[in-house]
């Protein structure tokens, strides 16, 4: 690692000020720390968000949304987001137990790894990403692999998830990294179905419009019969080519529909 200063503010205000002075946020660090070890980043100053009580916790707002503070760990979400079982289940299977102790929802969404789990939940639920500056709809937030609507120094403070009637997250893991090779989040709301896919695309998490239309009309796995994902924008790597990933999108989507609860 290159040398850097590490600051540990205890209020959001202090964190925002430290960020304005040229820091980069450090949340759970489960992606950032390996990146730093490989000397792929040279941040100069890191602002740890770990010691800010107001950035932690799970609650329900007046609209019935599950609201998760930005620095809430996956482990906490798994235990406390019980009102949204698909989300709790997703959080309970991110990485491994130690990763879930440290990794946070804000960190995951800010990083927007194309194979991360949380982006699928946020996009698939139509969540709202709140920052120290504004609120961003998930549909506007994800802007491609590792790219988001966040500006420099902007901190994810909270994520608000509308709770669907039923939902499920089906993950097919890449056996080395244990990240999703392809994972699909399906959520059925009163006004339609959202289908978000992670792990598959070179443009990061995305919604599968054709599947959403088919499932909005008829919420059954068989509604997806005959729908084929275009392999063109799929990721191709050691663990699967474009055709395989495109195929898995369909398989995992169907399984998510079957398991939606």
């Amino acid at each position: 690692m290159y040398a850097f200063d590490l600051e540990r503010p205890t209020t959001l205000d202090a964190a925002v000020k430290a960020m304005a002075a040229g820091g980069q946020p450090l949340s759970g660090g489960q992606t950032l720390i390996p990146t730093l070890k490989a000397r792929l980043a040279d941040p100069g100053k890191l602002i740890s968000l770990h010691s800010i009580p107001e950035l932690k916790g799970v609650s329900t707002d007046a609209e019935g949304r599950i609201c998760i503070k930005g620095a809430t760990t996956h482990g906490t979400v798994a235990a406390e987001a019980v009102a949204y079982p698909a989300l709790a289940h997703l959080a309970a299977r991110i990485g491994d137990p130690a990763v879930r102790t440290r990794g946070t929802i804000g960190g995951s969404l800010a990083n927007n790894d194309p194979s991360a789990c949380y982006p699928a939940a946020a996009l698939g639920s139509g969540a709202t990403i709140c920052t120290d500056r504004r609120e961003i709809a998930a549909d506007d937030y994800f802007q491609g692999m590792f790219a988001t609507a966040l500006e420099d120094g902007e901190i994810v403070t909270e994520v608000k998830f509308p709770v669907p009637q039923v939902a499920a997250y089906e993950k097919f893991i890449q056996p080395a990294s244990r990240f999703p090779l392809v994972a699909v989040f399906v959520a059925k709301f009163a006004d339609g179905v959202r289908v978000a896919i992670t792990g598959a695309s070179e443009t990061g998490v995305f919604r599968w419009a054709e599947a959403e239309a088919a499932l909005s009309a008829r919420f059954e796995a068989s509604a997806l019969d005959g729908l084929a994902m275009d392999p063109d924008h799929m990721i191709a790597d050691l663990h699967g080519d474009k055709a395989y990933r495109a195929h898995l999108c369909g398989v995992m989507a169907k399984r998510a529909v079957m398991h939606a609860a």
């Binding site: 590490l6 540990r8 450090l26 740890s48 010691s51 130690a98 990763v99 102790t101 440290r102």
Partner: peptide
């Protein structure tokens, strides 16, 4: 996971957390 320790009772990889934290 060879570096697994407990921090405040929770399982953590000691290689993925700064000492200062």
């Amino acid at each position: 996971g060879a570096c697994t320790v407990h921090v405040d009772g929770m399982q953590v990889k000691a290689c993925s957390m700064f000492a200062a934290e």
